[in-house]
Design a protein around this nucleic acid. Structure first.
Lengths: 217, 217, 217, 217
DNA sequence: CATGAATGAGCATTCATTCAT
DNA sequence: AATGAATGAATGCTCATTCAT
């Protein structure tokens, strides 16, 4: 059961860049707040076992605090997952928005999109896995954010079609679908052991595949 | 935690074709065995909430029997999931093997593969979702079966490369990865509400995308 | 919960002498009835794990039949345990009664009692363990039979005291208590690994100890 | 199935002296910790029905808390039984060690041993029954502690044999076996209703019986 | 802020027993 | 006589959550 609201943009500004660097079991060094430690712990565990397999107890233990403490920072377990989601996806979206706002051609924009995405994956596999490769029980509850990246890409495609850079016969929703399928196929396979990392080494190949599949000039 | 063995080929011959036809809540009509009802109930629930979210209690109730009865047919919850998996994936693999054994060209084979896959999805969305779109906690335990379809496709690609039908520069593992990404993107998006309609209506488009992405003649 | 009646003398005449000879897992050879197989299986399992640890399912499986079949022969699990008890204890008591009826001196009678008891243990450790070394949840329900051997010994002691063969100052109930304690200490320790078998090799030592402890001439 | 470790000497220092004084059903008075209440409840129930017959549910109810609370104090039901065992047996062993360290003659030491043992039984029948009269499913897992009292007595006997106080022909293992058999026969019979308590009233008689049975000067 | 004890509902599983065949 | 499917209650244990300190 997952219900409720997402954290606002202002709430979510935590330092998650070095999430993967945090050693498991220790409550973290310099300025690591308990709240951040809990988020990091949750993502770490979820990326390994799936969201459903992670208990409040295990998150608290991994963060080095008690269960009670967790409830000082998050009103419920669901809210914790949603906060975590919002924090990570927010960063991703801002990057993608930057691509659209730049003057890049559709082809160059796609290349940049893939590069950034795979850099993200290589830099923080656990957070990436959490937000993009795991099924989210609260998918509908999220709505806006959940589909934000897809909608950004649809905008890119439609602009390309208007400019004549992209095959005009393909519908934007399908283009987005195929794009996401290709984009995530590599991280997904690396996680499952079917492909050897890093993801960045496949960026060029995947860009070509997307360009060809969507008929980009 | 999920461990153990998969059902053998001979054990798994149940009639699951009309799995989706079973009305929820009723113990099923004419010759529906309790075991089959349990399998159907399990798939139905898992496809809706994910595997982890389904309790033995809910499966039994959905099948119209008690929990004790379930354990007469499956030695554990894990074994139930694996039996279900084996039943469904077995059918799928046999179809795909048929494609390889026929004399179709690589391009025709891909078209047929997509057609069959989407027909399967449209015919039994729940079973398809269960085996192909849900993360399986027992992925490693399955091994063989789990990657069987991917390996079949790799064989198809390599044969095509030898024949000169497929771009020789792409590695088979990557080709398989991109293929699976494109193939499953449509059912996945339909489930998530981002795409409408029967998957079959996208078969041609997806086939084209695959052919172009992989450089098939 | 253990309630009900003991089997009558006529019901209990089964051949249990070769109980230990029955190979586990097989439904038994020549004339082994299902009922006998069930009793043997029950004793075998109880002597290894204690009565409480034995399930109806395990008894049936060990006897090579289904659980339903067990209920054709015994009205309940409790009744099974009581029937088993009656069968074994009946044999033991008849032997001891024979000692009293013979013309042996108290000292010789004790020696014979110990010899017979330890022969019984060595010949069928499982049955002996079941009736004499395991706590019986239905002890009170048995009443008569449960204390029959003790009462026989009390009679022996009182007769000895009348004859002047036994120290007259010791009360019969205490004499019986000490006697049983000494008699069973050896089989009990062998079962627990504190003493090496066979019990018969200790018969003489234990006889001496009893004789001295009770002040028998 | 019972596995795991025993509590260390330092862990086990609870006040169990007045274990029997705790009224059933009430959560206990002044400073009774939940953990102590649970231990007392467990012993109380086990001494009445045997260890196997006691459920976690019943222990929690008897202690006046929920099952969940029990698991805050004991990692499993098995560990609870072992903790309880360690607490009680630890006290008993220290007393017996004291006897060996004193300068008493073998005969006086035995008399003291019996006196202490029966005082223990009379003072806390339930705890005594739990540790000494009930079969322990985890007997092997305990090892050290389980046989500690027996080994202490063997030391006493061997010293007596060296001093010429004890019949040199009897082997120490057998002496220990007979001693334990005689010592426990009285509490055991009192529990079964064959003898009227208190056990202390039999201390002298049993001491004499032991002395005579083992040929102590 | 954080703890640690406690709750009560839920979990997967096993139990003794019944009954139509 | 025996089977095998089914029941319903009970098992040991984990869960998310609360709250006095």
């Amino acid at each position: 059961m997952v219900n409720g609201r997402l954290p606002s943009m202002t709430e979510r500004r935590l330092q998650l860049e070095d999430m993967a660097a945090e050693p498991s079991g220790g409550p973290g060094g310099r300025g690591a707040s308990t709240r951040d430690n809990l988020i990091r712990a949750a993502v770490r565990l979820a990326s390994g076992q799936g969201i459903d397999g992670v208990s409040v107890r295990s998150i608290a233990r991994e963060a080095g605090v008690t269960e009670g403490a967790l409830y000082k920072h998050f009103s419920s377990k669901d809210q914790l997952w949603r906060d975590v989601y919002g924090v990570i996806v927010g960063e991703m979206i801002e990057e993608k928005q930057g691509i659209l706002d730049s003057g890049l051609s559709t082809r160059e924009a796609i290349a940049e999109w893939v590069r950034l995405t795979y850099a993200h994956y290589d830099g923080n596999r656990e957070a990436f896995t959490y937000v993009l490769l795991l099924p989210h029980p609260f998918a509908e509850a999220i709505g806006e954010e959940y589909h934000a990246q897809g909608r950004l890409f649809e905008r890119l495609i439609r602009r390309g079609q208007r400019n004549g850079e992209v095959d005009g016969s393909i519908r934007a929703a399908l283009a987005r679908t195929l794009f996401v399928g290709l984009l995530l196929s590599v991280p997904s396979q690396i996680n499952e052991g079917g492909l050897k990392g890093p993801a960045s080494s496949y960026a060029e190949d995947v860009t070509h595949a997307i360009v060809r599949a969507l008929g980009v000039a």
